[in-house]
Amino acid sequence: MKPFDYLAPADAAEAVRNVAANPDAVFLGGGTNLVDHLKLGVAEPGLVVGLAGLLPSGIEELDDGALRIGAGVSNSDLAADPRVRERFPVLSQALLSGASGQLRNMATVGGNPLQRTRCVYFQDVTTPCNKREPGSGCSAIGGWTRHHAVLGASGHCIAVHPSDMAVAMAALDARVRTLGPAGERAIPFVELHRLPGDAPERDTALEHGELITAIDLPAQPIARRSAYRKVRDRASYAFALVSVAAAIEVEGGVIRDARIAFGGVAHAPWRARRAEEALRGAPASDGSYRAAADAELTDARPAEGLDGGNAFKIPLLRRTLTATLRDLAGEDPR
Rank of each mutant, 00 (worst) to 15 (best):
A238L: 08
T204Q: 05
R87W: 11
R280G: 02
P283C: 07
I314T: 01
A219E: 04
F27K: 11
R194Y: 11
S92I: 05
R301F: 10
G72A: 14
D294R: 13
R146P: 03
A171E: 00
Q93P: 14
N112R: 08
V90K: 12
T213A: 12
L28Y: 15
E249D: 07
T298C: 00
T32S: 14
A293Y: 03
K2V: 14
N112Q: 11
R319F: 02
V48Q: 13
L78A: 15
T32F: 09
R256E: 02
P89E: 01
L91R: 06
I187P: 12
R225D: 08
D173G: 08
A292N: 02
A329D: 05
V49K: 11
E14K: 05
R68H: 11
A20N: 14
L316M: 00
V19N: 01
M169I: 03
A268S: 06
S136P: 01
N310S: 06
Y6S: 14
K230Q: 09
S97A: 15
T32A: 12
A258D: 07
H156G: 06
A71S: 15
I260A: 07
P128M: 12
D307F: 10
R118P: 01
A238S: 15
A149Y: 03
P315F: 00
H193M: 02
D164K: 03
N130S: 13
R256I: 06
G309W: 02
Y237A: 06
R116P: 09
R259W: 07
V42K: 14
P23Q: 12
